[in-house]
Amino acid sequence: MTNMIQTTGLVKRYGEVVALDHLDLEVPKGSVLGLLGPNGAGKTTAVRILTTLLVPDEGSAEVAGLDIRKEPDKVRERIGLSGQNAAVDEYLTGYENLDMVGRLYHAGKKKSQARARELLERFDLLEAGDRPAKTYSGGMRRRLDLAAALVAEPDVLFLDEPTTGLDPRSRSQMWETIQELVRGGSTVLLTTQYMEEAERLANDIVVIDRGRMIAHGTSDELKVEIGGERIELILANSADIPAGRSILAELSGGDVQVDEHTRNLTAGVTGGAEALRQVLQRLAEKDVAVADIGLRRPTLDDVFLTLTGHGAEEATETSEDDKEGSGSGRDEIREKEAVR
């Protein structure tokens, strides 16, 4: 199988800070690679290098079989980029934005205009198409930005944190759109801070920290490595911590993370809902007062804690790029349950 993206030993430094530290990536044609990491892990730097916006200090990279250093112009003809801050002109209408991009790919007037209409329709922006992008909601802007990346039907698509900062509804809409693209056979490199997003959209996930790859595999493989769902228990009284710990330890058969100060206990479990039911039952039997309990998927923090021994937040101390958000892609399925 041919690789549409291939990098070997990419290094990028900003002064003292090493943003990328010998990163090797491979993305086969028609597949989706999820680049997962906290703010400042080097995700955006990798995308900027591969989209020819930045020149690496060391290493080599090919996109669509073209060397990014030697033939950046040809690379640009084959790629589409949609970034975390929607790169559209706010004074132009949606239609004008797409037409402008089409012209700059040298598509010709007729083709460019037809393509603009087609994309507006596909991204549910036809009605808003003749309004300045300034009037669009955050979700609409992102959709327009994604549409702009698709104008030339690129062979390789780069999506840099496509849903960061979006509300849950816009996010799931965006996911559906991306999934549709993927079904259409696009090759995609996607960066994200959300474990769930990577799981849902990518065949292959690379976890990076401080510019280095720290884990690589399918989402199932990674789950085995980092554990599946977790029960998070917050006790009402500090005195109950030992009791809570032993109940959780029994069921998870593994480590229980305890934060004495917040009375927060976390443990990985298998069998999700059933395990939760059992924990609740034991807690009731022992008369332990629960402030809050929930079942949740591993967050980026958990992944990092497991893989590196430090949380995702600590990794951002050397942050150099990504501006938004707080690295925790906490996606909790929580039942508020005030026992007693």
Partner: peptide, 17 residues
Amino acid sequence: TKGIIDRFRSLPMARSA
């Protein structure tokens, strides 16, 4: 200061355009 420059720079347009 806006993302639009990244878009322009990722397009196969003239560098001086």
